[in-house]
Design a protein around this nucleic acid. Structure first.
Length: 149
DNA sequence: GCCAACGTTGGC
DNA sequence: GCCAACGTTGGC
């Protein structure tokens, strides 16, 4: 089993949306992240749900992957915000996984806190200029964050 | 709202 | 295949 961190802007999709029901993690249009979704993220993997571009960026909770990577059908949907007209049904380019909430934390593990923690400060999300919306998390980082909440 | 970082695009 | 221009992300 592997661990991941998924970023989302709470104005678009927040932890409270995930509390209500499982979701397709659609709309990823970056090749590095696509490769994670297609090749590496498997059913049973766990992840941190991270709020970005908001007042207090940080980890809000945990989720479980309930379906491994499969083609992101919103790429073929001309009514979708994520529509990619250059993408054919025969040759899927973009992938997604399905996730469901495990736990919403009682408090936010903030980006400041991550940067200030010697075990966590190597996490991708703490690195300057990091723009990947999904990044790997080590088992040590996973356990360390869970101990904080 | 600014701006650094960096992925993507497209001309050559 | 190089690289400048452009667009997007995301912390501050």
């Amino acid at each position: 089993m592997r661990y991941w961190l998924f970023k989302s802007e709470p104005g678009t999709f927040s932890i409270d949306d995930l509390v209500k029901k499982p979701t397709h993690w659609d709309g990823v249009r970056n090749y590095q992240v696509r490769n994670f979704l297609r090749d590496d993220i498997k059913k049973g993997d766990r992840g941190f749900f991270y709020h970005s571009s908001c007042k207090v960026p940080g980890i809000m909770g945990t989720f479980e992957v309930i379906k491994s990577g499969y083609p992101d059908f919103t790429a073929w949907d001309s009514t979708s915000d994520h529509y990619d007209p250059t993408c054919s049904v025969d040759d899927p380019r973009w992938y997604m996984v399905d996730v469901r909430l495990i736990q919403k934390f009682n408090r936010v593990v903030t980006l400041d806190e991550i940067k200030g923690n010697p075990v966590l400060d190597k996490m991708w999300v703490a690195r300057r200029g990091n723009r990947l919306s999904i990044t790997p998390v080590t088992e040590k980082e996973w356990k360390t964050v869970l101990k904080l909440v």
